[in-house]
Simulated assay, not measured.
Amino acid sequence: MQPYIVSLLTNQRSKLMELWKKELDIVRQENYLHSVSDSVYENTNQEFMHFIIGIIDMDEKDAKVKLSSFAEDYIQSGWPLAYFTQGLQAFRRVNLALLSEGETDVENVLSNFTELENWIDRIINQLVYDYTGSWEDIFEMQKLSLLELSAPLIPVFEDVSVMPLIGTIDTARAKLIMENLLQGVIEHRSQVVLIDITGVPVVDTMVAHHIIQASEAVRLVGAKCILVGIRPEIAQTIVNLGIDLSKFPTKSTLRKGIETALELTNKKMVDL
């Protein structure tokens, strides 16, 4: 940025801060900031204003690093991006007023303002980029965590494990189910695995295909697989679609599946 602009904004810092603060108070009227307390909003305003003014005369690369660090702190705390973008638009308006104050050369004002405007646009673009990248990373991490939690293999008895499935099964989730299933069978040394589809709302050809594949994979590592939780409507759908589950033992409830699994492992339930 031109030294003249930096000098002007530095010399009029107090006035700039005063005018900008009034503009930021207007920004707060937006619904997304109603829940923020007065003290928190005031502290954020002060930090934001001091930060932006502090990087005016900074090298562009250094300013970019500082801005990313600044944005990361507020991203983690959940502060809305709109506050900063609207705050910088307010900064733009205030500076236009300061640059044109007492200036008679319109071309000079426009030239200075254009340079300042480009500088502000770069900051806004950087903030949007940092916010977008951060939320994408957070979303992907949460998605992976949910996927891992959505297909656990749980050992319930010695040699017997259960995998409860809940929700829609797509290709990506089917792959994870297969991986968890095979890893769990080996880790828990399971002889029988029960796949419980009580919580699966729809069993179509693709879902059945994935389940059959999982059953075959379990058989190849030396264990047996039983499909449990087949509701009447699911049974009707399987028949109507012509899905062949003849090689895949099925039970209507988890309890019946466990009883069968115990028999296959030479165990039985006894009432005391």
Rank of each mutant, 00 (worst) to 15 (best):
Q2W: 08
S7M: 02
L9E: 02
L16F: 12
L16H: 11
L16Y: 07
K21C: 01
E23V: 00
V27T: 15
E30G: 12
E30A: 15
E42V: 06
N43R: 10
N43M: 04
T44V: 09
N45R: 09
N45Y: 09
H50D: 15
A63P: 08
K64S: 14
K64D: 14
K64V: 00
L67A: 12
E72W: 00
I75H: 11
Q76I: 14
L81A: 09
N95K: 09
L96S: 05
T104M: 08
E107R: 10
N108L: 14
N112M: 15
N118H: 13
W119E: 07
I120C: 12
Q126G: 04
L127M: 12
Y131W: 14
T132K: 13
E136R: 11
I138F: 08
F139N: 09
E140P: 00
E140M: 06
L144H: 07
L146T: 11
L149Y: 03
P152S: 07
P155N: 10
V156M: 15
D159I: 00
V160A: 03
S161L: 01
S161K: 01
L165F: 01
L165S: 04
I169R: 04
I169A: 06
T171A: 12
K175D: 13
K175H: 14
K175I: 02
R189S: 13
V193G: 10
I195S: 05
D196Y: 07
V202S: 05
E216C: 00
A217P: 04
V221H: 06
G222F: 05
I234F: 02
I234Y: 01
Q236R: 11
L241V: 02
G242I: 03
I243C: 06
D244S: 01
D244H: 02
K247N: 15
F248M: 15
P249T: 02
K251R: 13
S252R: 13
K256L: 08
N266T: 09
